[in-house]
Amino acid sequence: MSFGAPSHPSSLGACPDDPLDAGPEWTPFDFTLSRFLHATDYERNGTFKLIPHCAKGSWIISQTVGTTPVILGRKLPTTTYVITDRHVVALS
């Protein structure tokens, strides 16, 4: 999985505590990404949620996959790697 943003969140300045205090340059994605990047590993493991969806496949496969959300860090061991000014994050 990969996500892209037009600019690195650090180029927008310090992340505000409240999204309502953010200026018009902060999109909801920028705000969420910035908070995720600056969180501790424990906080990241408790917030990264996956909502499965089977776009194509047989009825049996789509019923098996389901649509129940899961917080990955609570179900699988997750490791976060280096965050720099140019590269955001790599999860494994």
Rank of each mutant, 00 (worst) to 15 (best):
P24R: 09
R74S: 10
T79D: 13
D41R: 03
L72P: 00
T64C: 09
N45F: 01
T67H: 05
V82A: 08
L72T: 06
F29E: 03
F48Y: 13
L33S: 07
P28K: 10
L50T: 03
P28V: 01
E43R: 01
L20D: 06
W59M: 13
I83H: 13
R35E: 12
L50A: 07
P24Q: 14
K49N: 02
E25T: 11
I60W: 13
V65W: 03
I61H: 12
R74H: 15
G73K: 07
T68P: 00
P69N: 07
I60A: 15
I60R: 14
G73A: 06
T80D: 10
F48M: 05
L20C: 02
G57R: 10
L33R: 05
F29A: 03
V82S: 09
E43L: 01
N45Q: 12
P77L: 09
L76R: 11
L37F: 07
W59D: 14
P52A: 09
I51H: 09
E43T: 06
L76H: 10
H38M: 06
T47D: 11
P24K: 11
T68E: 12
H53K: 11
I71A: 00
L76S: 02
G23S: 14
P28H: 09
A55F: 04
T27W: 01
T27G: 09
I71E: 03
L33Q: 07
T78I: 14
T78M: 15
F36G: 03
L76N: 09
T80A: 15
I83M: 03
D21W: 01
I61Q: 15
H38C: 08
G23V: 05
F48W: 15
F36E: 06
F36S: 04
A55T: 06
R35Y: 06
S62C: 05
Y42C: 02
S62F: 07
D41K: 01
L20Q: 12
V82W: 07
T67V: 10
W59K: 14
P19S: 15
S34Y: 07
H53F: 15
L33G: 03
T40L: 00
T47K: 14
K75E: 14
L76V: 12
L76E: 10
D30N: 08
T64G: 03
I51K: 13
P19F: 15
E25K: 04
W26T: 04
T47W: 11
I71Y: 09
L37M: 13
V82L: 06
W59S: 15
Q63M: 06
F36R: 04
D41I: 01
L33E: 08
L50F: 11
G73R: 02
L20V: 09
T68S: 07
